[in-house]
């Protein structure tokens, strides 16, 4: 399809702007982002994250534990509260594999009708209460999409204020921002929960991050 490529590019060719000018214009646009951010959430990013997570618009649940070692207990509590069998798929992440999963049968391969999966997010975004997943050997993409219940551990120190704060310079195959359980508005525009992805999302915040810069737009007060 070399011909189509040449034809399209020929129709677009006009007066040439040099690369440096284009790059400077693109950078100048980003300088304007700060004052456009929805500046109505304030506080430590991890606290704002949990607060936003529980809002009806997002519809997820959250809790905080002191250390990752307490995650299996938190998972057990969740399973008991939802009357689910102690059988979970655990994301093949070294930090999770090293935990004492007493009383819970775990497996690393996720099945299409998996009831519960436990994962560890790459990071979080306070602005939208979004979890960030980076695909890789330790984080298969389907873990965030196949289970009915997705329980996600999130290090408090990995939660950053804004959507722009988790952009990787050399991103992996998939970067997935997950904001609440799956849903659809396709029938009469009304949001209902539980579409093809998880119907329930539970975030377990690990530790706290009181030293972090509070969430606030970069503008004069």
């Amino acid at each position: 399809m070399t011909d189509a490529r040449a034809a399209i590019l020929a129709r677009l060719a006009g007066h040439r702007t040099d690369q440096a000018t284009i790059a400077a214009q693109a950078a100048a646009l980003l300088d304007r982002v700060g004052p456009t951010r929805p500046d109505r959430v304030r506080g430590a990013p991890d606290a704002v994250f949990l607060q936003r997570l529980a809002s009806p618009a997002i519809g997820a649940t959250g809790e905080r534990i002191a250390t990752l070692a307490e995650l299996p207990e938190a998972v057990s509590r969740y399973l008991a509260a939802h009357a689910l069998p102690p059988l979970v798929a655990v994301q093949p992440h070294p930090e999770l594999a090293g935990l004492a999963w007493a009383g819970i049968a775990t497996h690393a391969d996720i099945t299409p009708d998996e009831a519960v999966a436990v994962g560890l997010a790459h990071g979080g975004i306070a602005e939208t209460a979004s979890l960030v997943f980076h695909s890789g050997a330790h984080s298969p993409t389907l873990f965030a999409f196949l289970p009915m219940h997705h329980i996600v551990a999130l290090h408090a120190h990995s939660v950053r204020p804004w959507l722009e704060d988790h952009i990787a310079a050399d991103p992996p195959r998939n970067v997935n921002l997950v904001t609440g359980p799956s849903g659809t508005t396709d029938i009469e525009g009304t949001l209902v929960r539980g579409a093809h992805g998880p119907g329930h999302l539970h975030v377990v915040m690990i530790g706290s991050n009181n030293d972090a810069d509070p969430v606030a737009a970069t503008r004069p007060a």
Partner: peptide, 20 residues
Amino acid sequence: ELTQYTSFHRGPRRPGDTDG
């Protein structure tokens, strides 16, 4: 404020990936 799933897809499966 944001869709439930906002995904960036970049190339095919990489060494070590178990899906994709």
